[in-house]
């Protein structure tokens, strides 16, 4: 599948999911199991994406400067730092560790 195909298909799917919410009966969205499943799915996917982005590599798995960056990001979030500060600190810490040769 070409990259453009992936981008357009994924975008249309996400847009369609939003629009569906305006036509399904209200009772469906208010069903507790549906609400639970939706919030569980969001948490599980985001946690998995954090892990993939921190440990994933061309060979499958790698421990490098990203691990230090994610720990720092966690500490900053715990201290209620704004999102943009967390993202920049994550990038900066990994960049410094690599520039100084401390970690790959």
């Amino acid at each position: 599948m070409s990259l453009w195909m992936t981008i357009i298909t994924a975008s249309v799917a996400v847009l369609a999911l939003k629009l569906i919410g305006y036509v399904v009966p209200r009772s469906f969205g208010e069903h507790p199991t549906v609400q639970n499943a939706s919030s569980i799915l969001t948490i599980a996917l985001l946690a998995s994406l954090v892990t993939t982005q921190t440990l994933g590599s061309a060979t499958g798995f790698a421990l490098d400067a990203r691990v230090v960056a994610i720990v720092l990001a966690g500490v900053l979030l715990w201290l209620r730092a704004p999102f943009i500060v967390v993202v920049i600190a994550g990038a900066a810490s990994a960049a410094v560790l690599r520039a100084t040769g401390l970690m790959p």
């Binding site: 999911l17 399904v24 939706s38 996917l45």
Partner: peptide
């Protein structure tokens, strides 16, 4: 491409519920 589309769509499911709530 399939994994990318499926992950984006699964993350988008919550928007459906938001839409139901605010429609």
């Amino acid at each position: 491409g399939f994994s990318a589309i499926a992950s984006a769509a699964l993350l988008g499911v919550r928007n459906t519920l938001y839409a139901v709530t605010i429609a």
